[in-house]
Design a protein around this nucleic acid. Structure first.
Length: 843
DNA sequence: TCTGATGCGTC
DNA sequence: GTCGGAC
DNA sequence: GTCCGACGACGCATCAGA
């Protein structure tokens, strides 16, 4: 059997058999009973995925390889237990974790994201290349050159491997056929081997204090590198260790394929049971009859009258499965339990086993950037659903009121402020706010899970002790509870008394703050009336300790000698609630969720510790393109934006429809529509943003698709006092491909040998340029930098430090300016100071 | 014990 | 976080 | 609109090597 054969039936479609054609003398004749698919199969499929830019084709290939994995999975399960799985067995096997879902691991590997399976490698470019050099017996220089040429380490390794015949175990020459396969008796590299090594490396991270971890990791990788039989095997092994597959398909795509594969797998099974002859076929098509263009797809049944119906039925099922899986996974962000539930219990099993649950993170809603107040207002106004009238009339008990000012904005009563005003002549029903704007805090996103659990070891019967579980998840859904030990303790103490609240999941932003308590006559502590929360910039928050050990140390320090000023005070700004007292709220509309949030958690609000995000509600009139009908909304939003970045000390404003659910994409309503969140930051808006004129002084060589160009560029500011070009930041965003092409040629002709004496930076780019141009760039904040020198020598006090730019991006070429006309170091300092004032940075 | 290199996660 | 490219 | 992959500044954690 050969992979270039045109048709495989599902029964024949067996990856082990397939692989036999590659391994002339397999070590064991029992290939078909192997529990793991061969790695070669995986590698070749991914090679195909990589070689096309067509998304549908990528999906087709991935779907089919996942189909293969499902066969393996089922066969393995059949060995364990022959009974048909039911929902109960799904749940019990999930709970007991008795059945490992290899399919999940395979999907994870296809997406090149081992983190989704809980693995951390802590391996990078340096150790991989070192391991590679020993396995391939090549010099670092050769590898570096190849990487430069190929733009990527995996491709480089494969290229070296093919060219030198290093795969041979004896180190001598060996015969390699057209596929680069050695006709030699050896073990087939299986998926299992790869997974074992990954798991092994992951475990090494736990062995704390052990010496020689680096070496053992390299050895583990070499184990794979040295048994490779085919360049693609090496190529993708390397890519997996790099955690960057560059196949053009990430987890999002792989999950869609997984859902599709599940449906196809089911059809194959049903048909196989019913009628052997008319079995739905999984076929491998090699249209051009050459080895480079095969792919798999389901071939409709031959000579079947219902062929077309059947085909469209399958297609429908696939789409449905994909949507379901996506939405379930969004609520229950644990790939393993979702896949296991799907594989064992089908759609029903998936839906029943994987709902919103305390302890399992929910995919957070994100916001799309908006360029102006007008754009945002228009966006929402245009997308108001026609069914809207019905929705508004049934909801909202919000009263009307005026903005009462900073101090009272966070009280529950003042939450509901409409944008109504005395000039409005409209029908009163038009004045119901549809939009809400919230401060966009410059902190760290956190999803806070809470649950009261009856204490297990409670002897007394009337004491009724309860434990309180609190978990913090980051934006990327890592469990970061240990980082916020102090907040956990604070919340526990506050929630202790709030017995009626059993459980919740909050969406919030954690911000570093300075708590100020104004003096009062009665000498009481801080209360809402005399407390003030001063928000500190992100850079302060980022200096927090991360590990459990460090957190414990910090607690100890606090008890003993630690100066209070060194402690970073944190405040939680809650802005949404996803789950409350056993009930998922993802299907609730924001206006209702917010009401529940305020009702449930107002009792624990304490300024500087736990607050609700500042917000205003805005009336919106349906319109297509007429801004006048929403001029009130625009004015209101403009002033709110100004306030948020001025006195509010925030990054800007978040915008949400009050009638959107907590889900990123509905079938009907894509995230870009009425339901999506938007963000509006100062630096997005042309009219308020500061731009900086900067001089390119150097660059590196790009990776991957930017391999042939300079990327990133090193940009500098000019200091007329010293005549120096002081680096401000690297920059790689905002350039079009054409610009890259042009500038790569332009600067190739303006390279200088070594770092110029008028250049001041800690960076060491591969290429140095003759400073000759001015580029306009834009960014968010200026930060104190350990590597960039902008403004150096002009800073008060700290001569050794410079200033850098957060989120830099290219805007345009300033061909009207000479390098000496660029923004000066002094100007950078001024900008930094005005920003510091705004941000209340205290040194 | 300290330092620089490296990895990783936050924005 | 930012952005441009391809679909 | 969606998905993907080019990469930004920073700071902490960890480890090898001095």
């Amino acid at each position: 059997m050969d992979i270039t054969s045109n048709y495989f039936t599902s029964k024949q479609f067996n990856a082990s058999k397939l692989s036999q054609s590659y391994y002339y003398h397999h070590t064991t004749s029992q290939t078909t009973s192997s529990s793991s698919p061969p790695f070669l199969h995986f590698a070749i499929a991914l090679s195909q995925v990589t070689s096309t830019t067509k998304r549908l084709l990528k999906e087709q290939i991935l779907t089919n390889i996942l189909l293969v994995y499902l066969y393996y999975d089922r066969r393995k399960r059949n060995q364990d237990c022959c009974s048909c799985p039911t929902t109960t067995t799904v749940i019990t096997s999930l709970e007991k974790n008795s059945m490992s879902s290899t399919t999940t691991l395979h999907a994870t590997l296809l997406a090149g994201n081992v983190a989704t399976h809980g693995y951390t490698l802590n391996i990078g470019f340096a150790s991989i290349s070192s391991s590679l050099c020993t396995s391939l017996q090549c010099s670092k220089t050769l590898l570096r050159q190849k990487i430069q040429k190929k733009g990527e380490m995996g491709d480089a390794a494969a290229s070296i491997w093919s060219g030198s015949g290093v795969g041979s175990s004896g180190g001598t020459q060996s015969r390699i056929d057209g596929w680069g396969i050695q006709k030699k008796k050896r073990k087939c590299l299986e998926m299992r081997d790869m997974i074992d090594v990954i798991s092994c490396i992951n475990d090494m991270n736990q062995s704390n204090g052990d010496k020689g971890v680096e070496k053992r990791k390299k050895d583990a990788m070499s184990k794979i590198f040295s048994v490779v039989h085919h360049p693609d095997e090496l190529r993708f092994a390397v890519k997996i260790f790099c955690n960057n597959m560059r196949t053009g398909a990430t987890l999002v795509t792989v999950m869609r394929c997984l859902a599709a594969a599940h449906v196809l797998h089911k059809y194959n099974r049903i048909n196989a049971d019913m009628e052997e002859e008319e079995e739905e076929e999984v076929v491998i098509i090699n249209e051009n009859n050459n080895n480079n263009t095969y792919y798999f797809k389901v071939r409709p049944k031959k000579s079947n009258q219902n062929n077309r119906d059947c085909k469209s039925k399958i297609k429908q099922d696939i789409i449905h499965a994909q949507e379901t899986f996506r939405s379930v996974y969004a609520r229950h962000n644990d790939l393993k339990s979702c896949v296991v539930a799907l594989v064992l219990g089908g759609m029903e099993g998936l839906l029943s086993a994987c709902d919103v649950k305390v302890g399992v993170p929910v995919q957070p809603l994100l916001a799309a950037p908006s360029r102006s107040v007008e754009e945002v207002v228009l966006h929402y106004a245009e997308n108001i659903p026609s069914s809207f009238a019905a929705v508004t009339s049934s909801s909202s008990s919000c009263g009307k009121g005026d903005d009462k000012g900073d101090n009272e904005e966070n009280t529950v009563e003042n939450r509901c402020i409409t944008a109504t005003n005395n000039t409005s002549e409209n029908d009163a029903s038009d004045d119901i706010p549809l939009l809400t704007a919230e401060y966009k805090y410059d902190g760290q996103r956190a999803q806070i899970h809470y649950q009261r659990i009856p204490s297990a070891d409670d002897g007394g019967d009337d004491a009724q002790k309860e434990d309180m579980n609190i978990l913090f998840f980051s934006r990327n859904l890592d469990n970061v509870t240990v980082k916020f030990t102090a907040l956990v303790e604070w919340m526990k103490s506050r929630l202790q008394k709030l017995e009626m609240i059993r459980s919740f999941i909050l969406d919030a932003e954690i911000v570093a703050v300075k708590r100020c308590c104004h003096q009062t006559n009665n000498g009481q502590g801080c209360s809402s009336s005399n407390a003030e929360t001063i928000l500190l910039p992100f850079q302060v928050l980022s200096t927090m300790k991360r590990s459990a050990v460090a957190a414990a140390d910090e607690l100890d320090m606090k008890r003993s000698s630690r100066n209070d000023d060194d402690d970073i005070e944190l405040c939680i700004f809650a802005f949404d609630i996803i789950y409350l007292d056993g009930k998922a709220l993802v299907e609730h509309v924001l206006i209702d969720r917010r009401k529940l949030l305020y009702q449930a958690l107002s009792p624990i609000v304490q300024p500087g510790y736990f607050e609700f995000a500042n917000s205003i509600d805005i009336v919106l009139n349906p319109t297509t393109d007429d801004l006048n009908s929403n001029s009130e909304a625009i004015l209101m939003l403009e002033s709110y934006l100004t306030k948020s970045i001025g006195p509010g000390r925030c990054e800007g404003v978040m915008l949400k429809s009050l009638y959107s659910k907590y889900k990123s994409s509905d079938t009907r309503e894509k995230s870009g529509g009425f339901g999506g969140w938007r963000k509006l930051k100062k630096d997005y808006v042309d009219t308020i943003a500061d731009s900086i004129d900067v001089v390119p002084i150097g660059a590196w060589r790009g990776n991957g698709r930017k391999n042939k160009w300079f990327s990133p560029f090193l940009l500098a500011v000019y200091d007329p006092d010293s005549g120096d070009f002081q680096s401000l930041c690297r920059c790689m965003s905002g350039f079009s491909d054409d610009f890259y092409k042009e500038k790569s040629i332009f600067y190739s002709n303006r390279l200088i040998e070594t770092k110029s004496s008028v250049v001041s930076t800690n960076e060491n780019p591969t290429f140095w340029f003759d400073p000759c141009e001015v580029w306009e760039i834009r960014g968010a904040d200026l930060t104190i930098s350990p590597v960039h020198h902008a403004g150096r020598g002009q800073m008060m006090g700290s001569a050794g430090e410079g200033i850098s730019l957060r989120f830099p991006r290219f805007v345009r070429l300033r061909d009207d300016k000479a390098p000496e006309d660029a923004t000066t170091g002094r100007q950078i300092i001024e900008l930094f100071h005005s920003q510091s004032q705004r941000q209340n940075v205290m040194k």
